[in-house]
Design a protein around this nucleic acid. Structure first.
Length: 436
DNA sequence: TGAAATGTTGGGGCG
DNA sequence: ACGCCCCAACATTTC
C-alpha cells in the first residue's frame, strides 16, 4: 500500500469512511463529521471479502470507481483528496490506526449482516486504541426499531408498517442535510490508484442516471416494460449516489405509488435486521418442506432466457445484457422459476444478486421470498402468474419481447419448457403437500 | 403486485 | 307470448 505513505503522518486527522454513501450532498455522517472536525480525510476501502466474489469487470465496481473519481475531483477544489485503499477492512483499519494519529472515525450505518459484524469488529479494534467509530443513520428515514406495532413488535405485514411509517414521517422534522463545509477536509495531495492497479477492469455495462421526471407518470406507466418509464433509482440508492432524505423531500407529494416503493425498501431492510435468518431460511418455516425439483438444465434455460415463454425470456435477457430488469418482469421471471419450474428461490436470488446493478440484499431476498410465497406478507402460494396472460396485459404489442427476443416466432425460438396448465397444477399440489 | 373454476344473470334464437 | 337453451358477460369462490 504505497499510496498510503503520501499522507502527512505528523498531523492528527479524522476519517470519514465511505461505503455505500458515495456522495457529499445530504450525507448524514459526513455532515456531522465536517461540522465537528476540521481534519477530515475521506477514505474508501475495496474489500476483497466482497469483490473476490465478482468478476474483475463487474459493472458495480466500475460504477463505484467512477463515483470515487468524481468525489476526488470535488475534493481537489479544496486542496484535499480521496484515499482509496484495498484489503480486509479490519486489517486496513489496524494498519491505519498504527500508522497515523487518528482522532475519530465517522461513517454511516450499513444494515446488512456482513456489514454489521464488520463494523462491530472494527469498532472494538479502534476503541482499544482509544479511537471512536461513530456510525450515523443515513440510509433510511426510520431505523429498525423505530417502526413498531403497539406491542413494540416489528411489523411483518407491509400495510400497517407503511401506515406507521407515514404517520411517523409527519411527526418528524424531516429535511435533507445542508451542504457541508468542504473546506474542512484535510489538505493533502494524492494520486488515485488506477482501476487496473486495484485488480479490476472497466465494464462495458454502465449504470444509467436516475430519472426523477418518470415519477410523474409512475403509477400509470410503471407496469409496462417496453416504456422505460421507471426511475432507475435502484443502483443510486444502493450506492448512495442520491440521499434518501433529498429524494423523498423532492418527490413525496408527486406519487403515492412511487413513495410506496421507497417504503417497501425500508420494510425489507427492517425485516432483514429483525429476522436475519431470512437470508438463508424461509420467513415462513411451514414452507420448509417444499420439495424443490432443482433441475439444473431447466435452471440454465431460465438463466439464459430460453424457457420458450417470451416475456420470461425477454426479462432474463434484459438482465443478462444490461444488469437491469423491469420490476413487473422481475415478478414474472421469479414466479416462473419458483412455481413453474419448482426451483428453490435461493438459486434465483443468487443469480439476481450476481447480475443486478441495483442488487440490495434486503430487497432481493424479500422480493424473492415474496414471489416464492415463503416470505412475510408474501403472495399466497396459489397465486401463480400465467406468463401468457401477463404478456397480453403488459406487453400487448410484443414491443418489449421483440427488443430482447428477436427470434421469437421463428423456428429458432425454443418450445415451452413446460406446459403452463401442467406446471400450475404441479406447483399447487407440491405447495399444498408441503404445508400439510 | 392472479388466474382458473364455478356460479349467476340476462338477452336473443327458436320451437 | 312463453319456455327452453345457449352463451357471453360479469361476479364469486377456489386454488
Amino acid at each position: 500500500m504505497e499510496y498510503f505513505k503520501q499522507l502527512d503522518v505528523k498531523t492528527e486527522v479524522s476519517f470519514f469512511w465511505l461505503r455505500r454513501d458515495l456522495r457529499i450532498d445530504d450525507n448524514a455522517g459526513l455532515h456531522h463529521a465536517l461540522k465537528e472536525d476540521k481534519t477530515i480525510i475521506l477514505v474508501f476501502i475495496f474489500d476483497p471479502n466482497i469483490t473476490d466474489e465478482l468478476p474483475a469487470n463487474d459493472a458495480r465496481i466500475t460504477f463505484i470507481y467512477e463515483r470515487l473519481l468524481d468525489l476526488n475531483q470535488q475534493l481537489k477544489e479544496f486542496q484535499s483528496a480521496l484515499l482509496i485503499l484495498q484489503g480486509d477492512p479490519l486489517e486496513v483499519w489496524k494498519l491505519l490506526s498504527e500508522t497515523y494519529k487518528i482522532k475519530k472515525v465517522y461513517c454511516n450505518k450499513d444494515y446488512e449482516p456482513y456489514a454489521l459484524k464488520r463494523d462491530q469488529q472494527i469498532k472494538h479494534l479502534l476503541i482499544d486504541k482509544g479511537i471512536e467509530l461513530t456510525c450515523f443513520q443515513d440510509h433510511l428515514i426510520f431505523e429498525p426499531g423505530e417502526i413498531l406495532s403497539q406491542n413494540n413488535e416489528p411489523y411483518t405485514v407491509y400495510t400497517p408498517f407503511k401506515n406507521k411509517w407515514l404517520s411517523n414521517l409527519n411527526s418528524i422534522d424531516f429535511k435533507p442535510y445542508s451542504n457541508p463545509q468542504l473546506s474542512n477536509f484535510h489538505k493533502f495531495n494524492a494520486e488515485l490508484p488506477s482501476l487496473k492497479s486495484l485488480g479490476f477492469s472497466t465494464s462495458l455495462i454502465k449504470v444509467k442516471d436516475y430519472k426523477l421526471m418518470n415519477i410523474n407518470n409512475y403509477h400509470s406507466k410503471r407496469d409496462y416494460p417496453a416504456l422505460n418509464a421507471t426511475t432507475n433509482l435502484g443502483p443510486h440508492l444502493r450506492f448512495g449516489t442520491i440521499g434518501i432524505r433529498k429524494l423523498i423531500s423532492e418527490t413525496k407529494n408527486q406519487s403515492p405509488t412511487f413513495l410506496n416503493e421507497l417504503i417497501w425498501r425500508e420494510f425489507f431492510i427492517h425485516i432483514l435486521v429483525h429476522f436475519p435468518n431470512v437470508v438463508s431460511d424461509n420467513f415462513r418455516r411451514k414452507y420448509d418442506n417444499i420439495q424443490w425439483r432443482n433441475n439444473e438444465q431447466e435452471f440454465e434455460a431460465w438463466c439464459n432466457g430460453k424457457t420458450g415463454y417470451p416475456l420470461v425470456d425477454a426479462g432474463m435477457r434484459e438482465l443478462n445484457t444490461t444488469g437491469y430488469m423491469h420490476n413487473r418482469v422481475r415478478m414474472i421471471t421469479a414466479g416462473f422459476l419458483c412455481k413453474h419450474l419448482l426451483i428453490d428461490w435461493r438459486w434465483g436470488e443468487a443469480y439476481f444478486a450476481k447480475k443486478l446493478l441495483d442488487y440490495e440484499l434486503a430487497s432481493n431476498n424479500g422480493n424473492w421470498q415474496w414471489a416464492a410465497g415463503t416470505g412475510c406478507d408474501a403472495a399466497p402460494y396459489f397465486r401463480i402468474f400465467n406468463p401468457i396472460t401477463q404478456q397480453q396485459k403488459f406487453d400487448k404489442n410484443f414491443d418489449y419481447i421483440k427488443r430482447w427476443v428477436p427470434e421469437f416466432g421463428t423456428p429458432d425460438y425454443p418450445p415451452e419448457i413446460v406446459e403452463h396448465k401442467f406446471a400450475r397444477e404441479r406447483a399447487l399440489s407440491m405447495y399444498k403437500k408441503a404445508i400439510l
